[in-house]
Amino acid sequence: MSSKIPIYAIETLKSYKNEGILVSEFGHYLSQNEQLLKPHKHTFYHLVFFTEGEGEQQIDFKKFDIKPGLIYFMIPGQVHHWNFSTKPSGYLINFARTYFSSLLLATDYLSRFHFFSGQPNAQVLALPPEIQQKITAIFEDILKEGLHEAPVNDDLVKILLLRVFIEIARFQATLEPFNKETYNHTLLANFMALIESNYTDLKLPKQYAALLYITPNHLNALCNDFLGVSAGSLIRDRVLLEAKRLLVNVDLRISEIADQLNFTDQSYFIKFFKKYEKMTPEKFRKSIIHGN
């Protein structure tokens, strides 16, 4: 592995693409982009629906099985790689951050889909046969549009892709009934957005509770009721995730990473990381580089 984790833009990948979107049968895509078997990041949104194949994948250092009927979604910036034990097949779509901007007025439209939350456990779904059939038909229509001799109707592709998202969101809502837009769900979504914007500066639940105009106890109860973890754990997990992403780059010294994450000094960062990951940052870095 190179000293820096590769970051791929949609324009750098081989396969069919048209103005901000790349659509492909997965086996063909992988044969043209074998470098993606190693840990990497994307600057674009990414989804794969597997119809064949088995193995394992990692999304932000969490492991998930690969199997037929599984679909996963990724947002820009996440670290990812695959390890297949049998030959995979399926459908793949990559699209740019701005892909829907000419169709939708809402700039944050994708954020309403829980599978685009950036939380790995919500991004990987095993679909029942009836949902598989629905989205397979839609994926085939998207592929046909891309292969058509006439100019691609980009708005049609966008609408078809939104149909995929809506079908998956409806299914996911049956698994996670709390996803309905209740007051508490809105609070939780706002808390997660605040963490994403402030995790390097604000590391205490009471700081976020103040921004949300609720008490720390209310915030903690909210997180425990909906997610089964404390508010402090969510903040800490986001800091640890960023630490892991930074550690993949061996050109960054541990002290520089501690500084980027606003720890008072390197030793405090090492102690913090070891407490929750059960290994030092340096040992974690070696395990990623050498694949142990």
Rank of each mutant, 00 (worst) to 15 (best):
K206A: 12
Q78Y: 07
N190I: 00
N217T: 09
F139K: 00
P216F: 05
P129E: 00
G118P: 08
D108F: 09
P128E: 02
N217A: 12
F100H: 07
F73C: 01
E145N: 14
N83P: 00
K180I: 07
R112S: 11
W82L: 06
Q207K: 02
T186F: 15
A137C: 08
F113L: 02
L204F: 15
N83T: 04
V152P: 06
F84V: 01
N153Y: 03
D154I: 07
Y91K: 03
K87E: 14
W82I: 00
A193P: 09
P128C: 01
D108Y: 13
I138F: 09
S111K: 11
D155C: 07
L156V: 02
T98E: 14
G146P: 15
P177G: 00
H80F: 13
Q123P: 10
P216W: 10
L161V: 08
G77L: 01
L204Y: 15
D154V: 04
A96C: 08
E176I: 02
F116V: 02
P129C: 00
L103T: 15
L162M: 12
L110P: 10
A169G: 05
Q132F: 06
Q78L: 05
R163Y: 04
P151T: 06
S197E: 11
E167K: 01
N94R: 08
P177L: 00
G118T: 01
A137M: 05
Y109H: 14
V124K: 02
P120N: 02
E167I: 04
Y91R: 01
H218K: 13
N94I: 02
I75W: 06
L105H: 11
L160A: 10
N198E: 10
A122Y: 15
N217P: 07
T86W: 12
V164R: 00
N184C: 02
L194V: 01
F165E: 03
L211I: 06
T200A: 01
P76H: 08
A122K: 12
K87N: 11
V152C: 11
W82G: 10
S85T: 14
A173V: 01
L143H: 13
P88C: 06
Y208S: 05
T98F: 14
K144M: 12
L92R: 02
Q172N: 03
T174G: 11
I166E: 15
I214C: 14
K180Y: 11
G146S: 13
T182P: 08
T186V: 07
T86A: 10
H218P: 02
N184T: 07
Y109K: 09
V124S: 04
Q123F: 05
F95A: 00
T182G: 07
H218I: 05
Y213P: 05
